[in-house]
């Protein structure tokens, strides 16, 4: 999918500019985009390194686990088909907690473990279970408290208030998660 879209952007863009005879501009765009890419990664580099350092402290001090335990009672209500002490639920809470803290790379292994555990209790091994779908809907609405990459790029482009989008992003996330979970609930019920 990503291969097709990447190719689509380039092929369509180049053909379109050639048709309209904007060859000089096309050359400029191709040659300067590498520099733009380097500038963007340089904008991101300091904050990613700094934040990874701070988050390592959160991980090692057990803060991540405490947040997970704090969220567990709420999360268990969203997964009626999982037992309260199941391993799957433990991995789900760790995944959501890591995602919330912006630890994407730490979240993925927990998510994969959660899927593995849910697959053990799944009757049709090639079909998604109710709990899996709820988990993925919750996971993809992406509950990130501090979107560091967005803040870093805002800062580098001279925003007077780079962090002002934290609140709007949290509110939009809540709306998206709520909508996703509601639709998931309705569709799960409908089938029974």
């Amino acid at each position: 999918m990503i291969n097709k879209i990447w190719g689509f952007f380039i092929i369509v863009g180049i053909i379109f500019m050639l048709i309209f005879g904007r060859v000089t501009e096309l050359n400029d765009t191709i040659l300067t985009s590498a520099t733009s890419g380097v500038n963007m990664i340089l904008d991101l580099l300091p904050i990613i390194v700094l934040w990874s350092g701070i988050m390592k402290i959160a991980e090692k001090s057990g803060l991540l686990n405490s947040i997970g335990n704090f969220m567990k009672p709420v999360l268990s209500k969203l997964f009626p088909s999982l037992k309260k002490d199941s391993k799957a639920l433990g991995y789900i809470t760790s995944n959501i907690a890591a995602n919330a803290m912006g630890l994407g790379s730490a979240a993925t292994p927990f998510g994969l473990k959660a899927m593995e555990e849910m697959q053990k209790e799944n009757k049709n091994k090639d079909t998604a279970s109710d709990a899996m779908i709820t988990f993925l809907v919750l996971n993809t609405s992406g509950v990130t408290i501090i979107p560091t990459t967005v803040i870093a790029l805002r800062m580098m482009h001279g925003s007077s208030n780079p962090e002002e989008i934290i609140i709007t992003a949290i509110l939009a996330t809540i709306a998206a998660s709520f909508a996703g979970l509601t639709l998931d609930y309705i569709r799960r019920r409908k089938r029974k």
């Binding site: 899927m115 593995e116 091994k125 993925l136 993809t140 992003a169």
Partner: peptide, 22 residues
Amino acid sequence: STIQGCTDTTIYVLALYFGSIK
């Protein structure tokens, strides 16, 4: 900024997680 911060890459995540358990 808000759109980037509020949602994750749904299609990628589904492909990765469902793919991992076939």
